[in-house]
């Protein structure tokens, strides 16, 4: 860990000012990811700005019938919030499939979106890694890549975005609200994270001097037909090898709307509107599910240790759709 200076912001504008004024400054919310990275010397911010006192922990109704999740509301408070449980059970279930109770009590919604990859090489400063040190190489491509991506990879990086919550948020078509030096802007969840391309050092499209203030959920919550399937190496406290968030609307046994987002397979929660469209108008059933799954994974590419994820993802999609449609 490096030596750093510390500041505490009490209003959003002050936090943004801190970021703008200090090159490399980092916000700290729950600290569950950032502090780990600092201990391993992966993150070495010269300045930490504590944002825990910002008034951003509320969960509020929105005029359009949606719900606003404050960036500093904890994962636990969000998952157990009555409105989330009643109207967005997919989100509640997804959050509770992540990490452990202790972590969820500390982890914030904003921090959760920004958690970094679990790629072993990224975490070990004794090895090269393009994401940590651009240009140094990507040993995962020929190395230990069982946890790595099968979709949207590049020659520079095959890391995954590891989180759960964002996968449900992608299916729910949430919108991330951010504040920067020039004011506020909205980023649809689907455009929040990015693919690695030639610049894997950037996980997402948030600018270094921007603060996440909230995550907005649109009205449609798929409360009736949803599922989150998380396939992992132990029953809890493990990142997804593959996860699938599914939300359906159905009428008379037929699917009228479908949302599918995959976690653990790409540098961002993976959605494919074409695959979703294939489901619309179909009767819920194994053939339709399998066709959507095949389409979703048509461009998947496996590496030495993770090729199994392609078939696994197909099966997880089928399972999620089956669960959602029969719920």
């Amino acid at each position: 860990m490096n030596s750093f200076t510390f500041a505490r912001a009490t209003e959003p504008a002050a936090a943004v000012r801190e970021l703008a004024a200090h090159d490399g400054a980092q916000l700290v919310a729950g600290g569950t990811n950032l502090l780990d990275l600092m201990k391993e010397n992966v993150a070495r911010p010269p300045r930490l700005v504590d944002i825990n006192r910002l008034p951003l922990a509320q969960i509020e109704e929105r005029p359009d019938g949606g719900l606003r999740l404050g960036a500093l509301a904890t994962n636990a408070d969000t998952a157990y919030h009555p409105a989330v449980q009643a109207r967005y059970p997919l989100l509640a279930r997804t959050i509770l499939a992540g990490a452990s109770p202790q972590l969820r009590n500390m982890a914030t919604n904003g921090g959760n979106l920004l958690q970094r990859t679990r790629c072993y090489y990224f975490y070990d400063v004794g090895t090269p890694c393009n994401k940590r040190e651009p240009g140094s190489g990507c040993p995962a491509i020929a190395g230990l890549n069982r946890m790595h991506a099968i979709l949207g990879t590049s020659e520079q990086c095959i890391a995954t975005y590891p989180g759960d919550m964002a996968v449900a948020l992608a299916a729910l078509e949430a919108v991330v609200q951010v504040q920067g030096p020039d004011g506020e802007r909205s980023i649809p969840l689907g455009e929040f994270h990015r693919l690695p391309g030639d610049t894997p050092q950037f996980d997402n499209n948030l600018r270094p001097d921007e603060l996440i203030t909230a995550i907005d959920l649109p009205r449609r919550g798929f409360a009736k037909h949803h599922s989150y399937v998380k396939v992992r190496d132990r029953s809890s406290y493990a990142f997804a090898l593959v996860s699938v968030a599914a939300g359906l609307e159905m009428e008379g046994g037929k699917i009228t709307t479908a949302r599918l987002a995959l976690g653990g397979v790409a540098h961002k929660p993976w959605r494919d509107p074409e695959a979703e469209a294939l489901l619309v108008g179909q009767a819920a059933g194994a053939d339709a599910f399998r066709a959507a799954a095949d389409h979703l994974l048509r461009d998947a590419r496996g590496y030495r240790f993770n090729a199994f994820k392609i078939e696994l993802a197909r099966r997880a999609v089928v399972r999620a759709l089956r669960e959602a449609s029969t719920a």
Partner: peptide, 19 residues
């Protein structure tokens, strides 16, 4: 990772034991 001759999952998040 045999390219580095180094144990890579050297922490308790990635070295799994049962919960």
């Amino acid at each position: 990772d045999h390219a580095f001759g180094r144990f890579m999952n050297h922490n308790l998040a990635e070295y799994h034991i049962p919960v």
